[in-house]
Computed example of a mutant assay.
Amino acid sequence: MFTKAAARLAGAAAAATVALGLFSTGAAHADTFIPLPGGEITETLPDGTAVTIRLTDESANISPSMGATPLHRNVWVSGRAEVKVHAEHNGVKLYPGYVVGCQVDISGGGATGGANASSNWEGKGSGGVTSGGNLTLGPGQASTFWVLQVEGPNAYGEQGYVPAIKFKGQEGSVTWADSTLGLEGCAGYAQARAFVAVEVTTKFGRSEMRLWGQPFSLG
């Protein structure tokens, strides 16, 4: 059964954190594979348009320590983000990512990291990545790791990189496999959780929504 959770991008409510995959003392250097349940929601926009967001095939493979020090962790994350708009619209943006926290309730943060993908603006959007990035966090800090960095104009029309694919068809998806997320500087307890953020534009305006995955422990 999927875990259902959603929040608006602005003022997203943090769900209760659930610690999974804790490491025993005798297996401090062993990788831990964590299958994750993903999730699914259907939101109805103010104009009546229904939008379905799914997070599937989600997992994490965690190394609790790199360089024989508790300040370093490494995780390989995999998953698939899907969105379907059940009506005509003027465009969709799909932003998959992870929030990572060090001794803090993980509900948001800044953007960093990423990888490359592609999109077909005229039809069904799709993307796939296999690389990743690194985060440096101290106690009480959280940050966002974006799965994508797609070349294109930003909100000001300047050429750069955006962490999303965009499409005008009814369906779009992004698949990532063994995307590397490294965490440094956190001497305490660390967690991460996936999210799928979606922005839909219709003739009545623009709406934003987010599906949260289940939190998991980085040790």
Rank of each mutant, 00 (worst) to 15 (best):
V162W: 10
I165R: 01
E151P: 13
G48H: 07
S143V: 14
G110T: 03
A60C: 12
G182K: 03
S63R: 12
G39N: 09
N134R: 03
T3S: 05
G101A: 12
A111F: 15
G110H: 04
Y98A: 05
E184Y: 10
Y156F: 07
D105V: 00
G160I: 12
P46E: 02
A15G: 15
Q141S: 06
P35R: 08
P35F: 02
A115N: 13
V174Y: 11
A30N: 15
A190T: 02
A81I: 06
D47S: 14
D105G: 06
V198F: 05
W76E: 04
Y189I: 10
V196K: 03
G157C: 05
Y161M: 13
N120T: 11
T180L: 04
G219H: 04
H29W: 15
G108M: 07
P64S: 13
P215I: 06
V18L: 01
A194N: 13
G26P: 11
Q191G: 01
D57F: 04
A60Q: 13
W121V: 14
M209T: 10
H86I: 03
S217D: 09
E208D: 06
N120S: 15
F33M: 08
C102Q: 02
G39T: 02
A192E: 14
E158C: 12
L36W: 01
G97I: 00
E88K: 14
F167A: 01
S173H: 15
A164P: 06
A30I: 14
V198G: 08
P163Y: 08
V85I: 11
A115V: 04
Q103V: 10
A187W: 08
A187Y: 10
G157A: 06
Y161R: 15
T3V: 09
K203I: 03
P215Y: 03
G138Y: 05
A194L: 10
A10T: 08
P46V: 05
C186W: 08
V51G: 01
L20V: 09
I53Q: 01
L137Q: 00
P35K: 05
D178V: 02
S126N: 15
R206P: 00
F195T: 09
G110A: 14
A190H: 09
N74R: 13
Y98R: 02
L135V: 15
Q191N: 04
W121H: 09
L137V: 09
S119F: 15
V198T: 07
N61R: 11
S78I: 01
K84T: 10
G67A: 06
C102M: 07
G109M: 12
